[in-house]
Amino acid sequence: MNDFRTSILPAAARLVVPVQCVFSIYLLLRGHNLPGGGFIGGLVLASALVLRAMVAPSRAPKFDLIVLSGIGLLVALASAAMPWLGGGTFFTGLWGGQIWLPTVGKIKLGTPLLFDIGVFLVVTGVAAKLLLVLMSQTDESDA
């Protein structure tokens, strides 16, 4: 791993990573009608994971990120198939009630949100995996 043992980056990462994690969820939840959504939320979370791994290689994600993407695909597919199982057309939005969350505001619950969560997981898994692998690749050549 590259040498990031200056004190600035770890100190900044300690502050930034938790904020990034919360912010990614915030982006995910407000995404249906406002700027945000699963894709961008996933990218933010992936960058948080990568930043954490950069400052402390031992804290790179221990689970297989590709499995995370697989789960995401299944979640997205489930959101598309749910209306089908209920007798409708694939991808028809099913809505059920709404909840209110502080700062995010009203969230309509339904299959589009589930689909967004699926996208979120896929993007997080793929983007983080990609960056981590590329990071380790460059090191091989530098060493």
């Binding site: 894709f39 990609l130 692998v133 590329l134 690749q137 460059t138 091989e140 050549s141």
Partner: peptide, 20 residues
């Protein structure tokens, strides 16, 4: 753009590996 981004990410990884 998203698709181009994905292909490009793969292309960069590929070129890097091919170079090695």
């Amino acid at each position: 753009i998203v698709i181009g981004f994905a292909v490009l990410a793969f292309a960069i990884a590929l070129v890097l590996r091919a170079y090695h």
